[in-house]
């Protein structure tokens, strides 16, 4: 029985990782860059939630909307100010810039809110008792909302005009431009969607542990990136699969005492093993370098 509840916890954790991983994978597929600062957008979202649920307004639903809005604006600003001037620069330069943006967001948060963790309680949940099985309501909510968001995103990308433009740009930027697609606009939209997903993920992160500090996003961000690479970076279903695998593995590692303190090491070891066996990830396409 306890295996089932661990599985449900793992699935809901996996849904959070998948939401974050989608932001990484979409940006990587379309702008061909690793947005190292993506995890810190979650942290910014959690602070917006903190300000609007604990200090002013005190309406959690409005706070979630405002957090999404704020993160979208932030993501677009970062894209336009820091990443756009480097379009066409070597990938090493872009990656270092992204690391810089991550440092910047963390240090600004530290200057404004200090390093002391802040309590953010949005809703009160009860656990469900079912045949001697205790299931947390927030896990179910995370799982359901996460699935709805992912289905909506898949439909959006595959059916809408903008979504197809995104697919085209990720396939071949030059050809997409020749077909009349506004590449810069598509990249900005991708960043906006990724940041909105990160804001949703920040709500779920606060369900799991209702405190936030300036490094809240760093570790989940890196783990979600591991999930994205695991599933094959650039592939949207890959990010979802990778996120779920990572969440389940992590929850099962945490369940057993002798493995619990190694859970981070296990997650990263899986990444290295998968990349050694299949460098393009589970669903990734192998790209041949051309001269």
């Amino acid at each position: 029985m306890s295996i089932i509840s661990t599985l449900i916890n793992g699935l809901s954790m996996g849904a959070v990782y998948a939401l974050i991983a989608l932001g990484y994978t979409m940006v990587y597929g379309i702008a061909k860059m690793l947005n190292f600062a993506h995890g810190d957008v979650i942290m910014v979202g959690s602070y917006v939630l903190f300000v609007f649920t604990m200090k002013s307004i005190k309406n959690p639903f409005l706070a979630i909307l405002l957090a999404i809005l704020f993160c979208v604006i932030l993501g677009v600003l970062v894209e336009c100010i820091a990443y756009r001037p480097l379009r066409g620069a070597p990938s090493l330069a872009v990656l270092i810039t992204a690391i810089g943006v991550s440092f910047l967001l963390q240090s600004v948060a530290q200057l404004i809110f200090t390093v002391t963790p802040k309590q953010v309680t949005m809703f009160q949940f009860n656990s469900i008792e079912f045949n001697g099985l205790t299931i947390k309501t927030e896990s179910i909510i995370t799982l359901v909302v996460g699935m709805i968001v992912m289905i909506a995103l898949t439909v959006f990308v595959n059916k809408s005009k903008t979504g197809r433009a995104m697919l085209a740009v990720s396939e071949d930027r030059g050809a997409a431009q020749l077909m009349g697609i506004n590449v810069n606009r598509t990249i900005v939209i991708t960043f906006a969607i990724g940041s909105a997903l990160a804001a949703v993920a920040s709500v779920f992160m606060l369900f799991i542990a209702p405190v936030t500090d300036p490094t809240l996003g760093a570790m989940p961000g890196i783990k979600a990136f591991v999930a994205a690479v695991l599933g094959g970076i650039g592939s949207i279903p890959g990010a979802m699969i990778g996120g779920v695998i990572l969440g389940i593995v992590e929850q099962f590692a945490l369940k057993y005492e002798f493995l619990a303190s190694y859970s981070d090491a296990i997650v990263f070891a899986i990444l290295i093993l998968v990349l050694l066996v299949k460098p393009s990830g589970i669903l990734g396409k192998k790209r041949h370098e051309k001269v």
């Binding site: 820091a82 480097l86 066409g88 620069a89 070597p90 810039t97 810089g100 943006v101 440092f103 200057l111």
Partner: peptide, 24 residues
Amino acid sequence: NLAGLKNLVYALILIIMMIINASP
């Protein structure tokens, strides 16, 4: 909490150096 300023300076160094050095 002012220790965050140090990282802020690092961050600005990284971003500005990269944009000046590598931006086409």
